[in-house]
Nucleic acid binder design. Structure first.
Lengths: 218, 218
DNA sequence: AATAATTGTATATGGTGTATACAGTATAAC
DNA sequence: GTTATACTGTATACACCATATACAATTATT
């Protein structure tokens, strides 16, 4: 796992092959199969290895809002530390210890809220889904910025030149002003905005949950 | 595109190879390269082809809430019609006509709301992210149910037997009651619950947006 | 010391994406 | 109408991939 995760961190998920991992340890490809049944298993174990995180105590002191924020931030941090994380295809819900811990944690935060079990689970899925999505987005931005040093073909989340030609006010009336303003392109203080952008969405979700909770209380 | 999408619909994305697509049309592999530069392009074009959707008029009559619901439902429907859609790895934001239309549409719905351009974009990303996430989830459930006819190794979103052994009340205090209750397993009227579950999250998001809008208005 | 289990390797199969060189065929230019 | 040029499909080849199988070397157990 150490070797595989290291390769993925340094060179991306496509670089992770059974051969690559095995030979990085000084063994032949097939020797790896003595310990890991398949490539799918390798990926699963990688994801599991990376989810080995110390989870903070769920305290009564801090409010559930702040604690959920911490949860989401942790998820994001994980995905930024391992940009390949969101590249691994998810075949169903990963039923593995550490992954399940990352479900149990937010559920524990919601424990005393007046929500049904279904609603709690749904809330967690909502938040983890949001994390995952924004993890993908930030990964893309990082990649774009990284490769933006080289040719100016694109940088930022949305490619500059081609986009501006494609997005005419007639065809995309609502998108046009956004592209024209240079939102999410290199003209823009992009990294910072993505952050506030991320916070905006998160706060909306938390607002929505809070509203529902307060309605349930009355 | 027709051929490629057809193969993906019927046999899943892994079945889509340059060879497969070409030979399904009675040509050799390399002939396909005369028209599509690479496999990545093929996938991009497939996604683009599938996003060719007639987008309803954005009317003043219906409220933005309902119209956003329609948007999300359309996204979900698309992903259910083409379960491979969420399998295609997203390398950056797809800057293609139809994909951009699927961004312009919800932006148009938000047009007259008192939100900044950034906030609008962020809202759209929030909603499309939610759609995508739940699309993945429903795809997984469909797959599970489909293969649940055969061996009883698993069905439902969370595998039954193994999960119940793994999730002890000590290790996963908050998750335990949920698993014990059989949420998202085969013991459960799963398909219906996923639906209400999906709605729950969506309504929380919409609530959050509405709250923010009403705050911005005052 | 003999037997069994574990661990690593060599080889082979059938797949993948794609670069290159070539052959035929349709179109355009003279 | 012939010639030249573009277009379109093919054959071959390469490097890589995941993995099945058969075998050798090592280690552990009896």
């Amino acid at each position: 796992m150490e070797a595989a995760v290291g390769i993925a961190d340094r060179e991306g998920l496509p670089a992770v092959s059974m051969n690559r991992v095995a030979s990085s340890l000084g063994f032949t490809t097939m020797s790896l199969y003595r310990y890991i049944k398949s490539k799918d298993d390798l990926l699963m174990l990688m994801s599991e290895a990376v989810c080995e995180i110390e989870i903070p105590e769920v305290s009564e002191g801090k409010g559930w809002r702040e604690q959920l924020r911490e949860y989401v931030e942790t998820c994001i941090r994980l995905m930024r530390a391992h940009p390949w994380f969101t590249d691994i295809p998810i075949m169903g819900v990963p039923i593995t210890p550490n992954n399940l811990k990352m479900v149990d944690w937010p559920l524990r935060i919601l424990r005393d809220l007046p929500l049904s079990e279904y609603e709690k689970m749904s809330t967690v899925l909502l938040l983890s889904g949001y994390s995952r999505f924004y993890g993908v987005m930030m990964r893309d931005m990082d990649r774009a910025i990284e490769s933006g040093a080289s040719p100016d073909s694109f940088s930022g989340l949305m490619y500059g030149g081609a986009l501006r030609q494609l997005v005419t006010p007639e065809a995309y009336p609502a998108l046009y002003p956004i592209v024209a303003a240079g939102v999410y392109t290199e003209d823009d203080g992009n990294k910072g905005e993505a952050q506030t952008d991320f916070d905006f969405g998160l706060e909306r979700i938390l607002d929505g949950i809070e509203l529902h909770v307060s309605r349930a209380r009355t």
